[in-house]
């Protein structure tokens, strides 16, 4: 009986006749051969003349042929090997960006928490500094670098007027240990932010130039990958991060729909008058959506042009 069907899977190329009996075949030794399956299929087709690919009932019978102890254990081996390779290959810059932005956000939270504790603790010893220096980073670095006397001198406060208690040296050392630890956290964070910038320059330069490094990284984190972000319509991108408000609106139309999500932290929106926030968010999301598509398909850098268009548009708003 002449051969009729050709079927390829990860085990090899198989040729079946009309009665679904195996006539000819070629077993793949490794996954590289599976990647070049078209080449092998051609070779076999030349040998047998015209062969057709099975579908419908024919495919059913052929798949039934592989439901056999012998083939199943082979399928397992090949599937494990292939899955291992594809898990390995699935790591890309998107995932690195996501991990980095998550690390930065977690550092932020830790720093805030610890600095609050430090301010309380240090105020027992020297409350004037904590009272006068409001900026966290400045406060931590100054108490690490300078002694109490000098700090008070800079703030023009007499040493004897200070409300702080006189602590023993080892008590002060304990406080300063925490301060130096927080200071290291700040250094780590600025290092990661620089690293994030480099990553985004490679992966999504257009998006980063429009939305800024942090917001574009957050959008990537939220959507999962650059591909998914590129597939989104601009209106989805606009309200990413405002899901709660969106679903509240969808369930009950009396609630207004959200105008913006994470995008709201962009300086163009924050610095605009309140009534324009929604309009600017829409324009910004439009341009960001174009930018992320250009990035996904590895197009040229056009961030400057998009940004200029955007600024022009915002200027015309009343």
């Amino acid at each position: 009986m002449p051969a009729k069907f050709i079927f390829t899977n990860i085990l090899g190329v198989f040729v079946f006749n009309e009665n679904y009996k195996l006539v000819d075949g070629l077993l793949f030794k490794d996954l590289d051969q599976f990647d070049e399956k078209e080449k092998h299929e051609k070779q076999i087709e030349e040998k047998h003349g015209s062969l057709e690919k099975p579908s419908g009932d024919d495919l059913y019978k052929i798949l039934e042929f592989f439901k056999d102890k012998k083939y199943l254990s082979e399928l397992r081996k090949k599937n494990i090997a292939l899955t291992r390779v594809s898990v390995k290959d699935s790591v890309n810059n998107d995932l690195l960006i996501i991990q980095t932005i998550d690390a930065v956000e977690e550092l932020n939270r830790t720093i805030n928490l610890l600095t609050k504790r430090l301010r309380e603790w240090y105020s027992l010893y020297n409350p004037e500094v904590s009272n006068k220096v409001k900026d966290h980073e400045k406060f931590v670095s100054s108490i690490v670098q300078k002694k109490k006397d000098k700090l008070l001198e800079e703030l023009n406060i007499d040493k004897n007027d200070s409300l702080g208690a006189e602590l023993k040296e080892k008590d002060v050392a304990a406080i300063l240990l925490l301060a130096s630890q927080i200071n290291n956290h700040y250094k780590l964070r600025s290092h990661y932010e620089k690293y994030l910038q480099e990553l985004e320059k490679e992966t999504c330069p257009n998006l980063a130039s429009i939305l800024g490094v942090t917001i574009s990284a957050r959008l990537l984190d939220h959507s999962g990958s650059l591909k998914r972000l590129a597939e989104m319509p601009a209106s989805t991108l606009q309200i990413l991060g405002a899901e709660k408000a969106l679903f509240r609106h969808l369930k009950n139309k009396r609630n207004p729909p959200p105008k913006y999500g994470m995008i709201h932290e962009h300086p163009l929106i924050l610095n605009a008058p309140r009534k324009n926030h929604g309009r600017i968010a829409r324009a910004l999301a439009d341009k960001a959506s174009i930018a992320v598509r250009v990035d996904y398909f590895k197009g040229e850098f056009m961030g400057d042009k998009l940004r200029k268009d955007l600024e022009k548009k915002i200027k015309n708003l009343r």
Binding site: L59, L63, F66, K67, L72, L82
Partner: peptide
């Protein structure tokens, strides 16, 4: 999927 599984 057809390339990687059998009938079930």
């Amino acid at each position: 999927l057809a390339e990687r599984v059998s009938l079930v």
